[in-house]
């Protein structure tokens, strides 16, 4: 049991590490949002010529907003993990202290009298660990959601590139630049999220 608990009580550090990395995701999501606004303005200016770009810009805005919302959810979950992890850590320490006492008590006449406290501490620890695992699972799911959205963004980028190639020369360079920035931001987010998942699942 001891080895098991060691594996699962250090998440308060992991959660903080994940949370810190999410700052970059947020920054990239805001970049996407900004590029989407630029694209929208350009679409309005270019008029009929680039109307096929409109759903793409709408998608970019939606993607940016969803990512920002997901980052909020992840931060909340990470905070929950941090708290759950510390509770589990304290629970683990309590069990260790009781086990230490059991060992030191030797043949003390009332040695068994704190057995219920030890059992209760072990039961609490198990419950803390279950909560922690639930939180970690949920965090993984949220990170996975961002990653799958960024994969979808790849498809949109390809479509956008094709669309950009068809618009008049006057706007083409601008649209291509927006698509490139969108692509880069999505790529960056995917890399950060992958790193977060790696950190989360490393221990």
């Amino acid at each position: 049991m001891r080895q098991n608990t060691e594996l699962k009580t250090t998440f308060f550090i992991t959660a903080v590490a994940v949370s810190a990395r999410l700052g970059f995701v947020l920054k990239e999501a805001k970049n996407i949002s900004l590029e989407a606004m630029n694209a929208k303005a350009l679409v309005a200016r270019a008029g009929e010529n680039v109307r096929t770009f409109k759903p793409i810009t709408d998608y970019m805005v939606e993607l940016a907003n969803d990512t920002i919302r997901l980052v909020d959810d992840i931060n909340r979950e990470a905070l929950g993990i941090s708290k759950a992890s510390l509770i589990a850590l304290r629970g683990n320490e309590a069990v260790n202290h009781f086990n230490g006492a059991k060992q030191k008590a030797g043949n003390a006449i009332y040695r068994d009298s704190f057995e219920p406290a030890l059992r209760s501490a072990e039961k609490d620890l198990h419950s803390y660990q279950q909560n922690l695992l639930r939180n970690v699972r949920r965090l993984n799911e949220l990170l996975e959601e961002i990653e799958s959205r960024m994969l979808a963004a790849n498809v949109v980028t390809s479509t956008s590139r094709l669309e950009a190639a068809t618009v008049s020369k006057l706007y083409r360079a601008n649209f291509e630049a927006i698509v490139a920035k969108f692509e880069q931001a999505a790529k960056n987010i995917r890399a950060i999220v992958r790193e977060c998942r790696k950190v989360l699942n490393s221990k």
Binding site: F98, K102, K104, A105, A108, Y110, F114
Partner: peptide, 10 residues
Amino acid sequence: FSSMLASVVH
């Protein structure tokens, strides 16, 4: 704590 608990149960 563990030393104390172990001692009082004597």
